[in-house]
Amino acid sequence: MSQSAESMDSAILGGAGRRRFSLDNRYIAPLFITFILVVGHLGYGILESYEKTGVAIMVAIVAELVLGRIFFGKWVNLASAYISGISCGILVRSPALWPFALASLLSIMSKYVLRVKGRHLWNPSNFGICALLFLAPETVAALSVQWGNFKWPLIVIWTLGSIIIYRAKRAHISATYVASFFAFAFLRSYITGDSWWAEVAPITGPMYQLFVFFMITDPKTTVKSKKWQCIVVFFVAFVEMLLRLNHVVHAPLYALFLVGPTAMLIEIWLESRRPVVLQESNAT
């Protein structure tokens, strides 16, 4: 198993971010998401229980430790697993305990199983949560309404998140997605006849804060070029619009689930052709 098995859920932990920041700065993302969790819980009680979130985090960490040791031959950095676990702990909504454990476990395992040419395809927590939404909808829902519906938490989280994502040089991804979402909201409003406010309402909610800052920016499951990152995330928003027009409740999660790996596969396929072209070029 290659080095890239040690994937990160967050921009700040990998790629350019890792080179740019000192070791301590690598933990900005985990700290930020922990901040969201703590503030959200103390202010609004977003967690149904500490137990469930704790289980999600612990399962992700233990799975990462064990699988990393087996397939990677060393104790891997746990920041990624922590983010996957805490994302599952926040985003999964279920009265039962097992979905939190299963979502975390599937998230981490997906990085080791669903791989093509040494790269994994799905954002881990996106995969884990979508899998449960598909397979156990009677027990599981995704976070949608917690955090209250008030402006100050929204402003604080979006401001801090924007600063952090900007420093990690991934702000173009989030910005492209947000701009695309608003544009498609206009289009949806035109098509459906519903109020534009109703169409933009979801992005003012809590799930999108995690989605915009943590899921779509994951360096290990986004394509490499900056331009194509923007194009891919535009397509995420586009597919989300199509799903929304078909009344799919978890449209953003499913859109990323569909578009992200597709883009990755195309990039991997294109990269696999490149050496041949080089040889021909050299021959020429």
């Binding site: 949608s144 519906n149 459906t192």
Partner: peptide, 19 residues
């Protein structure tokens, strides 16, 4: 679900709720 997750200025106004 779309409207329920929205900001208070959106959710609190019946005019914004889809038909």
């Amino acid at each position: 679900s779309k409207i329920a997750g929205g900001n208070s200025t959106i959710i609190s106004d019946a005019a914004h709720w889809p038909a």
